[in-house]
């Protein structure tokens, strides 16, 4: 009698187990991307590389939903709300403070990874500290005000005779937190200390007028700030620089790729790979509050040889040697 009952129990539990296992075959997790614009494709690839390291492959066991504000018809909040409605497992905010802010308002439970340039996550209240973010937000950050001197240094190596150099920056403080404003101010001060002439531009038309102003002032070279607006308008800026035969140094390699003379800034590809890894870890069950905020510390120097030649510049061998990438 007891033996029979035991066998029945065993059979029952086995069948239950398989049923449960079947029931647990869920839909793959969804990662939602939120940002003012789509990032450069190369960067997405890096993101996927990072994701792959943790065994997640797009289309196989993970799905990505992209919500870019392509035409600015719909606001970020709407897009964010939609992501939340879709119950995504993770939200990745690209490019800047605003997307992160919107995402933070949209949800306090879904993990958020921000990829931010130029804002202090602690000051903005996203995290309690770099080491232990607390909450559901973590990500990558870069305080790169200090890069300015380095970029100037490099530019001067390429254009040794440049005496008067203009610094193009975005002084738009809408939606900026106090630390961002502080940073902006610091940026301005460093630029002034370095002896740069500052030009402000907030949008495309401002860029046009800034360049028009610059023709009057006739600088020897141009340093472009790393504002995302500028990144969006890179083609315009590069074309203008080329028109006015102005050697320009940028902060992102997409400028160099687009034809800009040189760029020195964080190796975004590497950063996006790190973001992909973080995404993988979170999907595997890590909690955002345990993942510290990373600082980008890989920098790359990209030089566009063609543009240099077009500008009649000769590359010093040293620069040649230390350049991470040369575009011909």
């Amino acid at each position: 009698m007891k033996r029979r009952d035991f066998i029945l129990l065993l059979a029952g539990s086995v069948s239950l187990g398989t049923a449960a296992a079947q029931a647990q075959d869920p839909a793959p997790p969804v990662i939602g991307f939120l940002g003012p614009q789509s990032p450069v494709p190369g960067l997405l690839a890096s993101f996927h590389r990072g994701l792959n390291e943790f065994g997640f492959f797009d289309g196989r066991n993970v799905a990505i939903e992209y919500q870019w504000v392509l035409s600015q018809n719909r606001g970020l909040p709407d897009l964010a709300a939609e992501l939340v409605r879709h119950r995504v497992a993770l939200i990745v905010c690209t490019d800047g403070l605003r997307a992160a802010k919107v995402a933070r308002e949209a949800t306090a439970t879904i993990p958020i990874i921000f990829v931010g340039v130029g804002f202090d996550p602690v000051d903005n209240g996203f995290v309690t500290s770099f080491n232990r973010p607390g909450g559901n937000i973590t990500g990558l950050s870069l305080l790169n005000a200090g890069l300015l001197s380095k970029r100037l240094d490099l530019l001067q190596q390429l254009v040794p005779r440049a005496a008067k150099i203009t610094y193009l920056m975005n002084d738009d403080s809408v939606g900026l937190g106090p630390s961002e404003i502080k940073q902006q101010e610091a940026e301005r001060q460093i630029a002034a200390k370095l002896g740069l002439v500052i030009q402000y531009a907030r949008n495309a038309s401002d860029i046009d007028s800034a360049f028009a102003e610059m023709t009057r002032q006739r600088p020897d070279a141009l340093l472009v700030g790393s504002d995302p607006v500028f990144s969006r308008q890179r083609v315009q800026i590069v074309a203008l620089a080329e028109r006015y035969k102005l050697p320009a140094s940028y902060s992102r390699r997409e400028f160099a790729d687009a034809g800009g003379l040189m760029s020195y800034g964080p190796n975004r590809s590497e950063s996006w790979r790190q973001v992909g890894r973080y995404a993988g870890r979170i999907l595997k069950g890590a909690r955002p509050e345990d993942l510290p905020v990373r600082l980008d510390d890989k920098y790359e120097l990209v030089i566009n040889g063609r543009t240099a030649t077009a500008l009649g510049l000769t590359l010093p061998p040293l620069l040649h040697a230390i350049a991470d990438d040369m575009i011909e």
Binding site: G146, S149, D153, D297, Y299
Partner: peptide, 15 residues
């Protein structure tokens, strides 16, 4: 050789 810094290069600051 006297212990004075004569050169400083960095990835984020100017040389």
């Amino acid at each position: 050789p006297a212990g004075h810094e004569q050169l400083h290069v960095s990835r984020v600051t100017a040389t």
